[in-house]
Design a protein around this nucleic acid. Structure first.
Length: 510
RNA sequence: CGCGGAGUGGAGCAGUGGUAGCUCGCAAGGCUCAUAACCUUGAGGUCAGUGGUUCGAACCCGCUCUCCGCAACCA
């Protein structure tokens, strides 16, 4: 860690065809924000990059359905998402978007450079084409009869009735879900990034040099590398996106998975037009990607291969991917509208950002999928946040007001117990740091909570309300120690509960 | 037999060979500044199932079951 001078933190770009929900927050944005706030607190040089991912087929389909342009759709969701992140306290240094001019230029330049270096290959293939909608169709957008079970509504990639994986060419009577017409086969040509050529160094880089990555991340990468990498298309036939900057590229745009991660770079450029390069090209800079488990392969294999092919960029030092969060036992689903939407939460629970931040961190899906329930939300708020943290602060402040007119009392001679408690402050802070350095957010939060527990026990053991009748000097010392605990509580919790910490610092006058 | 992650007291999680821990909940007691509380103690688990390795297995190996993700044209 000390060998790095600065840290570039990115969080997955949310796809701008819907608002952000608690699953996104728990998996990506809350841990990323905690990590960034922690580094800032330590005085480290860090930037936190976010933005909306605004290209791709689903956005064009949604636009068509609503009779709007794709730009209308992404404008709507970009604004909702950006505003809700701000209100929720996700402290991006920049939250931009992939439809920006900076990004179009950056992504185009990136493609041109790889093209000029001969890092792509071109391949022709046959694909289903919808003559009515006038576009090529991904397997997902074709339905038909499943050749295995006869289900009439199987998708081109999978039959949901029998669970079989399919190719769209397997379907009997294929139909386009866009127009309902029968698609025809048509030849098309695309640019491919030959990942197979990068396999050797990727193996060594991940499997030998990054054994410290989380088991889910490392295991997924190993699985892909062991299967053998194949060339991957980086362009699509579509009219919404970044036009492929090459000859004979009419009607072709960059595939969103080529375009989106470059968004991290573009957004850094937009934030720091003159100094962005050191954050991406200096070997003393550390790059960390926060993502969900569905994005592992793109951030650990595809994007690094792109960066390496370009030649002048650093590679990610860590990719702490989380698993998924369920809601009341069911998968969160945008299309089924089964989610707790951030912008709605902020309306329903005004000034309760920290409660959700706390619950999502305490129950973060770090090693496996977890479940969010409103019952758990309420319990954790009442029995942990309010009862332990809030109560200790309240007790300390009330006692100080009652006996010392809200002035900080002098610290007299310290007992062994006092000293032990004060030592615990620094040992707990060290533990919190250690856990955060290793991306163990749940453990870090639990450890921080121990500071409040220590405080409650300290008050129960020393009983200042009894001593007040006989020894005010001693009471003063006890409350002085308690106030020190409270002050340190505001620091230890700053990355996790920034709103509460600010409020607490206000009450303590620090 | 495609690959990866996960299955531990009522709930959520830790624990990679040596008497099964933490938070919440529950019960009893204490305290009374705080009472949607705090402090102490306690009850509660055949560690998914099964077979094996070992003096000894939650942990190592085999098989089975369940949940989630990936499977290269979903993003």
């Amino acid at each position: 860690m000390t060998k790095f001078k600065r840290t570039t933190v990115t969080s997955a770009l949310p796809y701008a065809n819907g608002p952000v929900h608690i699953g996104h927050l728990a998996g990506v944005y809350v841990p990323a924000d905690i990590y960034v706030r922690y580094l800032r607190l330590r005085g480290e040089d860090v930037i936190f990059i976010g933005g909306s991912d605004e290209h791709g087929v689903p956005i064009t389909i949604k636009a068509k359905k609503e009779g709007l342009t794709p730009q209308d759709i992404v404008d709507r969701y970009h604004n909702i998402i950006k505003k809700s992140f701000e209100e929720f306290g996700i402290s991006f240094d920049i939250y931009s978007r992939t439809s920006s001019k900076t990004h179009h230029d950056t992504a185009s330049d990136f493609f041109r450079k790889l093209d000029a270096k001969g890092e792509f290959i071109k391949q022709k293939s046959e694909q289903y084409f919808d003559q009515v909608a006038n576009q090529f169709l991904a397997d997902r957008y074709i339905t038909g009869k499943c050749p295995h079970c006869g289900n009439e509504n199987a998708y081109g990639d999978q039959c949901e009735a029998c669970g079989t994986s399919l190719n769209s060419t397997d379907l009997i009577n294929p139909k386009s879900t866009l127009s309902g017409s029968t698609p025809i086969m048509r030849e098309t040509e695309h640019w491919y990034l030959p990942l197979d050529k990068h396999e050797t160094w990727l193996r060594e880089w991940i499997l030998d040099n990054h054994k410290e990555w989380k088991t889910n991340v490392y295991g997924q990468c190993k699985s892909w590398l062991d299967m053998g990498l194949q060339p991957r298309a980086v362009s699509r036939d579509l009219d919404w996106g970044i036009p492929v900057p090459a000859d004979n590229a009419e009607g072709k745009v960059l595939y969103v998975w080529f375009d989106a991660p470059i968004g991290y770079i573009s957004n850094t450029k937009e934030l720091l037009p003159d100094s962005w390069e050191k954050w991406w090209k200096d070997p003393e800079s550390r790059l960390v990607h926060f993502i969900g488990k569905d994005n592992i392969v793109f951030h650990c294999i595809v994007f690094p291969a792109m960066l390496k092919a370009e030649g002048s960029y650093i590679l990610p030092d860590n990719v702490p991917a989380n698993e998924f969060l369920n809601l009341e036992g069911d998968k969160i689903s945008t299309s089924r509208n089964w989610a707790v939407w951030l912008h709605e939460y902020l309306l329903d629970f005004p000034d309760k950002q920290d409660v959700l931040r706390y619950v999502l961190t305490a129950n973060a899906p770090e090693t496996k999928d977890n479940d969010f329930t409103w019952n758990d939300f309420q319990t954790r708020n009442n029995s942990e946040l309010v009862a332990i943290y809030g109560n200790f602060v309240n007790r300390t402040l009330v006692l100080t007001q009652k006996y010392f007119d809200s002035k900080v009392p002098e610290c007299g001679e310290l007992s062994d117990y006092d000293k032990e408690v004060l030592e615990r402050i620094s040992s707990i802070k060290n533990q919190v740091s250690k856990q955060l350095d290793e991306f163990h957010f749940r453990d870090a939060l639990r450890e921080a909570m121990n500071l409040a527990r220590t405080g409650n026990k300290y008050l129960a053991d020393t009983e200042p309300w009894k001593l007040a009748k006989t020894d005010m000097t001693r009471v003063g010392t006890i409350l002085n120690v308690s106030l020190q605990l409270a002050a340190n509580l505001s620091i230890a919790f700053e990355p996790f509960l920034p709103f509460s910490s600010r409020k607490l610092r206000g009450m303590l006058g620090i």
